[in-house]
């Protein structure tokens, strides 16, 4: 026996109908001038993020974890992931300025030099990786006994006090 597709929650249907009505009202105005361009941007933004950006960084991350894992250094992952991700994030957000693609307009509009952005981004990146390397070095540098004690201390903190 074939079941008819269920309706689901009537409240949800009503709520979404209201939402679509408002979105439609605003959308008619949003699409009024260049509907092709706007549709491309709206849908393109979602597709570009979900099908390109996210898979790319997920794959890069998987490669990093596997690479470090096969080198027996899986616990180093965060020391690479954090600075790399932060640097990539800054590049993503400030790409027009860092890449210099708005140089001319920026210079003539603001009266400021457009030269520093790439250098500053590289410097921040260097500081992020440098700081991360420093933290890792600190974690690794003292002889194993120190670390063991640290780990022990951390573990005992959460344990209920032993019976005296």
């Amino acid at each position: 026996m074939r079941l008819r597709p269920p309706l689901g929650s009537p409240f949800q249907i009503l709520l979404l109908a209201c939402s679509f009505a408002l979105a439609g009202y605003a959308g008619a105005r949003l699409f009024a001038d260049d509907w092709r361009g706007v549709a491309l941007w709206l849908v393109g933004a979602a597709l570009l993020h979900d099908l390109v950006l996210l898979p790319l960084y997920a794959l890069a991350d998987r490669a990093l974890v596997r690479g470090l894992g096969s080198a027996g250094r899986r616990e180093w992952t965060m020391y690479v992931r954090v600075p790399a991700a932060l640097s990539a994030l800054l590049l993503l957000v400030w790409f027009p300025l860092i890449s210099g693609m708005v140089d001319q307009r920026y210079r003539s509009a603001t009266g400021l030099s457009a030269d520093g952005f790439l250098a500053r981004w590289l410097l921040i990146t260097a500081v992020l990786f440098g700081g991360s390397a420093l933290l890792l070095a600190i974690r690794l540098s003292p002889p194993t006994r120190m670390r063991e004690r640290g780990r022990l201390r951390r573990a005992t903190k959460r344990r209920p006090p032993p019976v005296h």
Partner: peptide, 15 residues
């Protein structure tokens, strides 16, 4: 369900 289908369309607008 119909409600779920509408929700997924709405998610396209959201994202």
């Amino acid at each position: 369900s119909l409600a779920h289908a509408l929700e997924r369309i709405s998610l396209l607008l959201l994202v």
